[in-house]
Design a protein around this nucleic acid. Sequence first.
DNA 1: CGGTTACTTGATGCGTGTCAATGTTAGTGG
DNA 2: CCACTAACATTGACACGCATCAAGTAACCG
Lengths: 256, 256
Amino acid sequence: MQAAVQPRLSRLETHLEKLTAPLITKFESTGRLTNEIRVALASLPVHVKHASSGEIVVHEGDKPHTSILVLRGCVFRHKFVADGKRQILSFNIAGDMPDLQSIFLETMDHGLTSVGESELGHVPHEALRELVTKNPAAAQLLWRETLIDAAIFREWVSNTGRRRAVSRTAHLLCELVFRARAVGLAKDNVYAMQLTQSHFADALGLSMVHVNRSLQELRRAKLIELAQGKLGILNEAGLRKIGDFDPTYLHMPATG
Amino acid sequence: MQAAVQPRLSRLETHLEKLTAPLITKFESTGRLTNEIRVALASLPVHVKHASSGEIVVHEGDKPHTSILVLRGCVFRHKFVADGKRQILSFNIAGDMPDLQSIFLETMDHGLTSVGESELGHVPHEALRELVTKNPAAAQLLWRETLIDAAIFREWVSNTGRRRAVSRTAHLLCELVFRARAVGLAKDNVYAMQLTQSHFADALGLSMVHVNRSLQELRRAKLIELAQGKLGILNEAGLRKIGDFDPTYLHMPATG
DNA sequence: CGGTTACTTGATGCGTGTCAATGTTAGTGG
DNA sequence: CCACTAACATTGACACGCATCAAGTAACCG
């Protein structure tokens, strides 16, 4: 399957099995990963590219022929509204495929930008389509990922629509930590991230100034520490309470 | 395939081929519907139930064994946040499967309520899973539906996060009319709907009072007529401009 | 025809945005 | 190693969009 669609080889592609590792790790925790699927995923052609800080990797309106698998770093999806204001739609870390939907939706309805430096695996749609046509189990695993993606959007609609600034901010922090933990990126309740308050503002539908004040309120309440790219959760129960955070919507295997 | 999973028969089920008609009509316009898929969809077992006005059909937290296909009427998805406020996540009309995601996401992260009286087809997950396992083309058509669903959520995040009340309201009206048109439910730019201003408020993250004032502003500007359950678009270009509405996110076949 | 539900209107206050200045930190080159 | 710079974070003053409260009106319904 792979030979037909193999793109130009990068040096890293000689270690194919390693490239989809973050994806496989993620699926493993769900208990849905058979050996057959693992092999199929591991043999997907992946072309690794480096993205620099702030680089727009995919533009709104593009008609891409690959989907992106985040290997290292962090990216975000975004839209622009009429007056130039930006809305961030999701943050995505290692193991996420933030534009997987483009395999069946021709035109990108949003853009994709790298937060800091990141490494992104580009997977040809052709290969993905062949995989999901021939391997229903793998298809359903990927489909499920896009369904969780949608579930997160639903929660963001609620968050933005019906919670006030402090609660909204706390909710986002909870989500980030939960998802980072699930892929082993948040040890000891500390998560290294490079998001600025400006990113938070655009994700939460708030002004940067107000995000700053909301974060201060969370710090004053001894719920979090946040400085120099390190987010520390001091009181998770408290943060979840303020953020009205119930992780059900993340549809993780064993989250109580 | 069907015999194994056939649920108790309702009288209407003797006309199986008619029940998935709204779904098939919708897919036909995309040009992706082969005869084989049509037959497969038409032979899905569908158990028709009537839902009364305001009836909660599926609750948040449920673990359903069927997905719902709207046959007639209108339903909406919703979540509740800590202080009891409600957020509406989508409005769904004939041909929509608002909780299709439940085939792979065990727990409902939102509820489903009927707006007025409606007729809902319940399709067993078992039959759907068998269909999508044996028929990749049908699977991809359904997958694509859930991807469009997600695209609409993304737009709602932007709408709620970054547009002000009047623009937000106009945007929602545009979306409703576009989607109604796509399934033949909005003739002559008039769409019959039973949504109250309260529904709009919960969908837009606004108070009912402010929705009322926003609608008045749109009426004063001669952009819409809205009364007695009839929404009339008087100046579509104007409404789209105010609502900053670009239908790309609906991923319809031929929308300019 | 009385009760209910939806819509409308006005008055008031709060939450958040905007503007503008300043502080802080990290990176850079002389 | 320090001056310079740019990006990010913080603070205060003020304005405004929208929520809330409350009352009233119109439409619908059995």
